[in-house]
């Protein structure tokens, strides 16, 4: 049997529920009409699509084809082929299948050269599956369409570093 609740409490709860909805009625609606009004995305937005960055000074790709992102990706959607010339590694091909991406940001986290970043993009759905399989060209073009989110590999790795014992040594 359920615990006996006193009648005064029941009446009070009933009136409280009615009062609560009445208060909501008198409030201004909080709805934001999404396609008409777009809320600013948060700085550390983790969603949408990816980009491969290009070093603005030299105009070269940052990706060195190290395959760390391919190894860490939980849903195994990244495939990288590496080639070596002119003193460093390059990604010969870089394919990211966005269909199975879980937006975990681990690939960004491990990247040693800030080559892969997530973007401030919201409306990436398409009607064709092919559009979601991103190759190197598409990834680089994406970087020009949207601006990058806060997180890059080096910034995230810096967060994980132990704090410098500056207070104790003084």
């Amino acid at each position: 049997m359920a615990k006996k609740v006193s009648n005064t409490r029941l009446v009070k709860a009933t009136l409280l529920a009615l009062w609560f909805t009445l208060k909501n009625l008198l409030r201004k609606p909080v709805t934001i009409q999404y396609p008409l009004i777009k809320r600013p995305l948060p700085e550390r937005w983790r969603g949408g699509t990816f980009a491969l960055t290009i070093d603005p000074e030299t105009g070269e790709e940052n990706c060195i084809g190290c395959k760390l992102c391919e190894k860490i990706c939980p849903s195994e959607i990244i495939t990288v082929e590496m080639e070596k010339h002119s003193g460093r590694g390059w990604a010969k091909s870089f394919i990211l299948d966005l269909q199975a991406c879980i937006q975990c940001e681990l690939c960004v986290q491990v990247c040693p050269t800030d080559a892969i970043v997530m973007l401030h993009s919201m409306e990436t759905p398409t009607t064709r599956r092919e559009d979601l399989i991103l190759d190197k060209d598409k990834l680089e073009a994406n970087g020009k369409l949207y601006h990058a989110a806060w997180a890059t590999g080096l910034k995230l790795q810096r967060l994980h570093e132990p704090k410098k014992p500056s207070v104790i040594s003084r």
Binding site: N24, R27, K28, P29, V30, T31, Q33
Partner: peptide, 10 residues
């Protein structure tokens, strides 16, 4: 909608 502070069909 208004009772839940939404605006309902629009």
């Amino acid at each position: 909608g208004r009772l839940q502070s939404r605006i309902g069909p629009y």
